[in-house]
């Protein structure tokens, strides 16, 4: 295995594109090193992108925030602006692993690992976050929910990497929330994850919403029916019941060591209801 630590995105892309064997990007490494240890991944080239200064930045862009691929969870949590605008995305990212993992793991790495149970991705998908993919042929913008093809498999082409994610600008009375279900209080992989992002008008009526589910299908996905159930309502109990029902119906999980189909479907609804309630209260400023 070769280890490279380029200082520009262009160099990173060139290295990845030129490698004839398996090449992997190393950001926080909290997934990659585990895969290497277990033998699941045996790369010929590892490209550490943490020496690329630009990728450590959180910058404001068009009223939103661009989060560099090398920003660890703990740094995101320390950013007051992002935390105020996108508390759900931040809490999703902060749920990835322990304090130790937070010092390393990045939101973009979590996205590119393509786990259906990734904690930051449902919140990002609900947020309408856009990943900027850079490759040998330039860059392109991709909705985060389209980065994963299936478990561990991305839609990125050879030589491509995600250099950042853009969280869009926020109108007034807007907020989001992410909840996951795990058996313990920490250190587990999500059994179900749910991100809810909504916008209220001055009267508290929901004018826009996005709801995403994780760990209940091969990919993290949006649930338009759940969003529709919120829009036009005051996010009251009836709307929340409808959100829960839509999410339970949309979940297509499997039985595995972390949970049963029955459990995951039911809890999808439970979490959607709870997350929507939190997002509503945050948007109203009553949280």
């Amino acid at each position: 295995m070769r280890f490279e630590a380029p200082t520009t995105v262009e160099d990173a892309v060139s290295l990845l594109a030129a490698e004839s064997g398996m090449a992997r990007v190393l950001a926080g490494g909290t997934d990659l090193l585990v895969q290497m240890k277990s033998g699941i991944s045996e790369p010929d080239l590892v490209v550490d992108i943490k020496r690329i200064a630009a990728l450590h930045e959180i910058s404001e862009e068009d009223g939103g925030f661009r989060i560099g691929a090398a920003v660890p969870g703990i740094a995101l949590g320390e950013h007051a602006g992002v935390k105020a605008a996108w508390p759900g995305v931040v809490e999703g990212t902060e749920l990835i692993g322990s304090t130790q993992v937070q010092g390393r793991a990045t939101m973009v790495g979590n996205l590119c690992n393509c786990s259906p149970a990734a904690d930051s991705v449902p919140a990002m998908a609900a947020a309408g976050a856009i990943a900027r993919v850079v490759g040998p042929n330039g860059s392109r913008d991709v909705p985060v929910e389209d980065i994963a093809q299936g478990p561990g498999k991305s839609t990125l082409a050879k030589g491509e990497l995600v250099d950042s994610v853009l969280l869009p600008a926020r109108p007034d009375h807007a907020s989001d929330a992410y909840l996951r279900f795990i058996p313990r209080t920490e250190m587990d992989i999500a059994v179900v994850g749910c991100g809810v992002n909504l916008v209220l008008d001055a009267n508290g009526t929901c004018t826009d919403a996005r709801v995403a589910l994780g760990a209940v299908a091969a990919r993290i996905f949006l649930v338009p029916a759940a969003a529709d159930a919120l829009i036009g309502t005051s996010v009251d109990d009836a709307a929340l019941d409808a959100v829960a029902a839509a999410c339970s119906a949309a979940a297509t999980p499997i039985d595995d060591k972390r949970g049963t189909v029955e459990f995951r479907k039911k809890v999808s609804g439970v979490l959607a209801r709870r997350a929507a309630t939190i997002a509503r209260d945050r948007a109203k400023g009553t949280a």
């Binding site: 926080g28 490494g29 090193l33 585990v34 590892v46 703990i74 692993g97 304090t99 130790q100 390393r104």
Partner: peptide, 24 residues
């Protein structure tokens, strides 16, 4: 990275040293 017994500080960040490459 599941047990924390290898915790060290790298540039003032708490990390599991099993999840960091020596080369890094």
């Amino acid at each position: 990275g599941d047990c924390g017994a290898c915790s060290v500080m790298v540039d003032d960040r708490l990390v599991c040293s099993c999840l960091v490459l020596g080369a890094e």
